[in-house]
């Protein structure tokens, strides 16, 4: 009894302390069934490739992805030649040449994703003062959880990781529409159900498109799912490596716990 009580107290102390990060009063977006979450999930490569296409054709007009390198795209199932061809669409400043000039040359696989703007000032100037955020870490930065300790704890045990950030990106992409009668949206702003304060500077980015080459429908929901998956991957390109190693490490430790428990029992046999 004594032991149980004290154990419960210790457990309460450790577990209930992690309550800091409620979602600041904002609506909690619904949970989406991302294929990469859980202990044995994996990214859907076809979806990531379609997500890259959405980024390239839509988002990249305004949003940079500055922490990602073109060579990282190899993880999406592209060959070196395909990655090279993708990078070659963009231009970067060369190192100074013989005459001391820096000229624009084709980007290589080793380059980081080229930003649509030269600097923050240009980005603001072209977006009526607003700065479109960089998307490299957007899913991790919007991983605000579900606003209550127990739901977040349960999600942690289920191995959802930072998936609530992807839930948010999906919700934001599909959350545009006409404002309710009692909500007034300022000139140049747009109504979005899931954005804090409901007025967002970004116009609805995704509209219905033609089906993809593999026959995937071009609905807003499907494209939103693909871009959210892609940005989830871009937030931590080493994610699959981490989880693959984690499974092995946890399995090893679990077995080692059993061995050490048997050893302890044997050593302590003659005490009491």
């Amino acid at each position: 009894m004594n032991k149980l009580l004290s154990l419960a107290a210790a457990a309460a102390l450790t577990l209930t302390s992690f309550t800091a990060y409620a979602a600041g009063g904002a609506l909690v977006p619904p949970e989406m069934p991302w294929p990469s979450v859980g202990y044995f999930g994996a990214f859907d490569k076809a979806s990531l490739q379609r997500g890259l296409k959405v980024y390239t054709e839509v988002c990249s007009g305004c949003h940079s992805l500055r922490l990602l390198s073109y060579r990282d795209l190899g993880d999406l199932g592209y060959s070196n030649a395909e990655v090279k061809a993708y990078a070659a669409e963009y231009e970067v400043l060369s190192e100074p040449n013989k005459d001391g000039d820096r000229v624009l040359i084709q980007a290589s696989s080793a380059d980081k994703f080229v930003s649509p703007y030269a600097n923050e000032q240009e980005a603001r100037a072209l977006n009526s003062g607003a700065l479109p955020p960089d998307l490299s870490l957007i899913v991790k930065a919007r991983n605000r959880g579900k606003g209550n300790f127990f739901a977040n704890f349960y999600d942690m045990l289920r191995g959802r990781g930072y998936a609530s950030g992807a839930d948010y990106v999906y919700a934001l992409m599909t959350g545009y529409g006409d404002p309710p009668a009692d909500v007034e949206i300022a000139e140049g702003m747009h109504y979005n159900k899931w954005f804090v304060g409901n007025a967002i500077a970004m116009a609805q980015p995704i509209y219905k498109a033609d089906p993809a080459a593999d026959g995937t429908p071009g609905t807003i929901e499907q494209q939103a799912k693909d871009i959210a998956s892609f940005l989830m991957w871009a937030s931590e390109p080493r994610f699959e490596e981490r989880r693959a190693m984690g499974t092995k490490v946890l399995l090893f430790i679990a077995l080692f716990i059993i061995v050490l428990y048997m050893l302890k029992r044997r050593v302590w046999r003659d005490v009491h």
């Binding site: 992690f18 202990y39 991790k140 991983n143 977040n152 942690m156 191995g159 990781g161 930072y162 981490r242 989880r243 190693m245 984690g246 499974t247 490490v249 946890l250 430790i253 679990a254 080692f256 716990i257 050490l260 428990y261 050893l263 302890k264 050593v267 302590w268």
Partner: peptide, 24 residues
């Protein structure tokens, strides 16, 4: 012997956070 067993259980929790829920 006793501490090794306890430590390994503790490391299991540590590894869980590192590999499964590092940002929790």
């Amino acid at each position: 012997a006793k501490d090794s067993f306890g430590l390994m259980v503790f490391l299991f929790v540590f590894a869980f956070f590192v590999f499964i829920a590092p940002n929790y």
